[in-house]
């Protein structure tokens, strides 16, 4: 039986791990390679790096981080943040990323998803959707949540599936950093309209939130940062917790 995945996410800026609260107010918290290794040794089903490096001159640092990590971690490694072009994707994959997550570029130029999934295979193309509730619908935001697009998140999700995305990483901008749980409504709606796996993200504050993302949000995988990062819970504790609720988990 296919297991639900727990994915710790490391926000990386200038080659160092940070965690944003609502995408601002960053705290420095260590070396991404070491952190990733701790997670994979601890049973993480996958590791995610989100590169939030702002300046262009420091953008290449992430390649080195990915290269070092992929030599130490033998579980899937997903890298996102600032991925714009086929060339960016190709570089990350060559450095040892297994999947690349595309966000802003997938909105501005959806063809990049089509072309890249054809070229590299759907299995390595994850489309990240940052959505915020506006009135009674969800809207896509880009550039790390700064720019409004007026695009309906559900329509975008469907289009990305049609364009060949292998997975969707759905982040609720309203919930991210709040530690009050995933936006279950958003996650379950998207999961019900597409036939590709959904990774729920944004808002995890306790282990029940992870369980809710899978059971109620219909997510195949759950992504969290701070609950693991600051040692509140270990991956092992999370897995034990989910197992007790009869959620299929890789022991």
């Amino acid at each position: 039986m296919l297991k639900n995945r727990i994915i710790p996410c490391l926000d990386v800026k200038n080659g160092r791990v940070v965690k944003g609260i609502n995408f601002v107010d960053l705290k420095d918290a260590g070396d991404p390679v070491e952190q990733a290794k701790i997670y994979s040794d601890g049973g993480a089903d996958e590791i995610c790096f989100l590169d939030i490096t702002a300046s262009n001159e420091n953008r290449d640092i992430i390649y080195d981080v990915v290269k070092k990590t992929s030599k130490k971690c033998f579980v899937p490694l997903t890298v996102g943040g600032g991925v714009r072009t086929i060339d960016d994707i190709s570089k990350l994959l060559n450095c040892g990323a297994d999947k690349v997550s595309i966000n802003t570029a997938a909105v501005q130029n959806p063809n990049v998803v089509k072309t890249s999934s054809k070229k590299f295979g759907s299995q390595c193309i994850v489309v990240a959707i940052d959505a915020k509730k506006v009135g009674n619908k969800w809207e896509i935001f880009t550039h790390g949540g700064r720019n409004k697009t007026d695009i309906n998140a559900l329509d975008h999700a469907k289009q990305m599936e049609d364009y060949g995305a292998g997975e969707l990483l759905v982040t609720s901008m309203d919930k991210d950093g709040t530690q009050t749980g995933f936006d279950i409504d958003l996650t379950s709606k998207i999961s019900s309209i597409v036939n590709i796996p959904i990774i729920a993200s944004g808002g995890v504050g306790n282990l029940q939130h992870l369980a809710d993302g899978i059971k109620l949000g219909k997510a195949s995988a759950v992504l969290a940062a701070s609950i693991f990062h600051y040692g509140k819970f270990s991956i092992k504790e999370a897995k034990e917790y989910l197992s007790k609720q009869n959620i299929p988990i890789r022991a």
């Binding site: 297991k3 796996p197 195949s220």
Partner: peptide
């Protein structure tokens, strides 16, 4: 549509 594709993740 009962099973999502791709089949992604850990299976026994």
């Amino acid at each position: 549509g009962k099973f999502k594709l791709p089949h992604i993740g850990w299976n026994q």
